[in-house]
Design a protein around this nucleic acid. Structure first.
Lengths: 339, 339
DNA sequence: CTGAAAGCGCTTACAG
DNA sequence: CTGAAAGCGCTTACAG
């Protein structure tokens, strides 16, 4: 990049000392430096296209304006939307991000955190691909750190999570509200923590309404698995009038199954999906009613908490923030007889 | 994080000078330091859990082991898969990544590159969401930089791109090879550079075979648009026996349209899609035959070129690397009469 | 074979 | 109101 101008170069050109340059450029000259000199510095900086070397600044101030992000691959791959949202907010706050992948093993996590620590990051963000319990290693609880989409069972580190159980409940309530009694639930593998919560919330809402749910468990969260399960459900002796899917890929499969069987949504089957932020259910015809995970809000909140902690210097108590998953109404829900 | 141990601490504990610590830990002690002292240093470092402060190292060596990534939002959002692949390879090479979003405007690009420059990144990676021509600002061409999924029309900066035209051609050839003559093409908006290339390649292959293609242009790359277009195509007077979709979301829509109409793939319609790496066409039933963009290979190559440039110190000539898009056979192609 | 010294580019008390 | 000096934690010629 050629040689970059340094504060010394600016000082030389402006005819002042290096300290003066630093003060003026950092806005601490407030009357301590004559207006003429201030102008000279500003002008010299402009002409030399001077911008301070962030590495040198960091070494001196021991603040890097960098957040470390630790993430890993889950059943649906990386939490790309959460990561993108976190990056957006961080940049808005004037922080850069250094991301590390790690296997969820303790050794790997520790190694990645060490690398981030050497890099002198100002804080850490742990972003889980699937909602889970996360046991933080001690380095984490000792420094500014926030968990996103996971939570510390020991409550030592602040976590920001979606209310997945509430999302499952809400999906069911939409159908109950339209008068459905024959409601089925199609989920991914139930041993998966996140799916378990979603399904659990849905089942609980059904039980509360005195409905014994018909439950199907797909082998995997995939479109084809959804199609297979959907076909089985719809060709059974007495198919339900409504269905909740715990993931939108399953919902796509169900729509394909219904189309194949000549059945219409919502006339023959009302459908509500929990969303995984891939924008699939929104593009189906009819648009599928869904309960979404508020990735943008969650990520923004996590970054807000983290940066204000860094900037205030004192640790807030460890909280668990639970975010409501909002309902987005499509056109896939009608009454039990298509009404 | 409490106070981290410094090289001085290690030197004190080991009873040697700071220089000795640095030499031993960087493996440059080769006989210059007695074996006993080397052991003492290593041992002290271990006991203090010493790891060098990367910021201080960077300031001294003027190497950060950080790559700057510049990216922006395209029609399908961010190029998340390319970014994930680039991160993976970078970490494998011992480089961290700092990512910046920028609008594709020159001002924004310039600002983001300036931030990255202040951070003293060792090199820059420009990752485009959709294949395009990218006019690099001068800072880029003056430092180690590689373009991923875009290319410099002026050929000053190395670019790594997929052969989208070839992908379009290949999709058609699969159908021609099975004896189809009635082949339609469903694309996204043709004024989109990437879509234009895909469609162009397909049309060219069709023309070469003496086939005048039936072309449909969806208003947007969405499932529902694909479904609408697919329905129109399949209910027309004389529907084609085969179809190429330029994007997998369109293919999902076509599958839904076919299912609704009681038509089967591939018996009634053979289908080939160009893939956008969302793993949708792979999860349809039947699995859709597709031509994929080799994101992992492209990203790995871009990072390889960039890091070896950084490490060798001298700029390689600006190249344009074009990557072949491989065919992945599903079960969505048969002969014109379902044979 | 080893240690003392310089210096990367900054910021910030501290004298004058 | 301003400049000279120290120091962040490292690496690397350079004396001894």
């Amino acid at each position: 990049m050629g040689r970059r101008a340094t504060a010394q170069d600016v000082a030389d050109l402006a005819g002042v000392s290096r300290s003066a340059v630093s003060l003026v450029l950092n806005g601490r000259a407030k009357g301590a430096t004559s207006a003429v000199k201030q102008e000279a510095v500003l002008d010299a900086a402009r002409r030399l296209e001077y911008t301070p070397n962030a590495v040198a600044q960091s070494l001196r101030t021991s603040r890097t304006q960098i957040l470390g992000v630790l993430t890993w691959r889950g059943v649906g791959g990386l939490p790309l939307h959460l990561l993108a949202a976190a990056l957006q907010t961080s940049l808005d706050h004037g922080y850069k991000l250094i991301k590390m992948y790690a296997e969820p093993t303790e050794l790997d996590q520790r190694r990645a955190l060490a690398t981030l620590g050497n890099q002198q990051v100002d804080g850490m963000l742990v972003v889980a691909p699937d909602l889970c319990e996360y046991e933080p290693v001690e380095t984490l609880s000792a420094s500014p750190a926030v968990l996103l989409n996971c939570q510390d069972p020991g409550q030592r580190v602040t976590g920001v999570v979606p209310d997945e159980e509430g999302a499952g409940r809400r999906a069911v309530e939409v159908l109950l509200g339209r008068g459905h009694h024959d409601i089925a639930l199609l989920s991914g593998p139930l041993d998966h923590f996140q799916t378990g919560l979603r399904a659990g919330g849905a089942v609980q809402a059904l039980r509360t309404a005195g409905i014994r749910p018909q439950q199907l468990e797909a082998g995997d969260v995939r479109i084809d698995e959804g199609q297979t399960a959907g076909t089985a459900l719809l060709t059974a002796g007495r198919p339900p009038t409504a269905l909740v899917c715990t993931n939108e890929r399953l919902a796509v499969g169900v729509m394909l199954a219904a189309a194949r069987l000549g059945l219409s949504v919502p006339e023959d089957l009302s459908l509500v999906s929990l969303d995984d932020r891939e924008q699939l259910s929104a593009q189906l015809t009819p648009e599928v009613t869904r309960v979404e995970r508020p990735d943008d809000l969650m990520a923004a909140h996590a970054v807000d908490v983290l940066t204000s902690w860094i900037e205030s210097g004192d640790a807030p108590g460890a909280h668990a923030y639970s975010f409501v998953c909002p309902l987005v109404e499509g056109a896939s829900v009608a009454g039990p007889r298509g009404g």
